[in-house]
């Protein structure tokens, strides 16, 4: 007993000591410098580019500045972002509610689980043509397909999270005679929240992909449509602007969600850290 427990302790001590060698300021310096150098390389190497597909970065950025001042571009960005946020919020709310119901009533979960898993196995983008053919090219088609595609990750992780909660928690709350609603809101859901938020993170990325796909498939508004249109009409600089802005939106939404997750799960992350250091 003593021997086996002393090994991980030694391991964790060795791990915490870390590896010395390269001084810390060099490491931080490279972390800051590398992105700047990469961007600089792009700028310099593309400066005199005659390749039609890879115009100079300067041209792309100038085009971005021009486009930002046109109302159509702003409407495109706004409609894309609006669809993304609205559908993500809708999918999260419906997903948590349905997932909680399925997690609490096992018989119901057994009944629908195979069907849900089949739906989840369909590539989410493949749902877009179905909605386009059923409802047409309107904005509600886009919102519906994004919401449905983003629904499954939240729903399944909520279900799993609720099922995986510590049984003692349920027992303690029963001993204290906490009503089922209070138990759900203040015990079960918080206990499942780490899983729920991981599911929401997957949902966000799915929603982003389906947002672009739904705009590229025969829609005329939205950043995805604008980018594809620019590609088809060989407006290469416009296409690059679209790609860059979409990339930044993808990165920024994930970054904001990560901050939100860290704030909501502060108690959980702290307890995990404590466990690691113990």
């Amino acid at each position: 007993m003593v021997f086996t427990s002393s090994i991980p302790a030694r391991t964790s001590v060795a791990r915490r000591a870390g590896r010395s060698g390269t001084p810390r300021w060099v490491l931080i310096g490279t972390e800051v410098l590398v992105p700047i150098v990469l961007l600089g390389l792009w700028w310099v190497s593309s400066a005199n580019s005659t390749n039609t597909f890879f115009p100079p970065l300067q041209v792309i950025l100038e085009r971005l500045l021009q486009l930002v001042q046109t109302p159509t571009f702003l409407v495109d960005v706004g409609s894309s972002l609006g669809n993304l946020l609205l559908s993500f919020v809708l999918a999260s709310v419906i997903g948590v509610l349905l997932g909680a119901a399925l997690g609490l009533v096992p018989a119901l979960a057994w009944f629908v689980e195979p069907t849900i898993h089949f739906f989840r196995a369909i590539p989410p983008v493949a749902l877009v043509p179905i909605f386009v053919s059923l409802i047409g090219f309107g904005n509600e088609t886009r919102i519906l397909s994004i919401t449905l595609a983003a629904l499954f990750p939240v729903l399944i992780s909520t279900m799993d999270g609720i099922r995986g909660t510590e049984p003692t928690l349920a027992m303690v709350s029963r001993v204290y005679r906490i009503g089922w609603f209070d138990r759900l809101v203040s015990v079960t859901l918080p206990a499942a929240s780490p899983r729920i938020l991981s599911g929401m993170q997957v949902s966000l990325i799915t929603a982003f992909v389906v947002m672009i796909a739904s705009e590229m498939l025969g829609s005329s508004t939205g950043l995805g449509a604008a980018t594809l249109l620019a590609q088809q009409s060989f407006a290469i600089a416009d296409m690059w602007v679209g790609i860059l802005v979409l990339g930044v939106i993808g990165y920024a939404t994930t970054a904001v969600f990560t901050l939100f997750r860290r704030r909501v799960l502060r108690w959980y992350l702290a307890s995990q850290q404590q466990e690691k250091n113990a």
Binding site: W240, G250, Y251
Partner: peptide
Amino acid sequence: FLKPIPPIVILPIVVL
């Protein structure tokens, strides 16, 4: 930076 960016974003240029 690349991690949260799905391949659909760079699809137009890759197709080109």
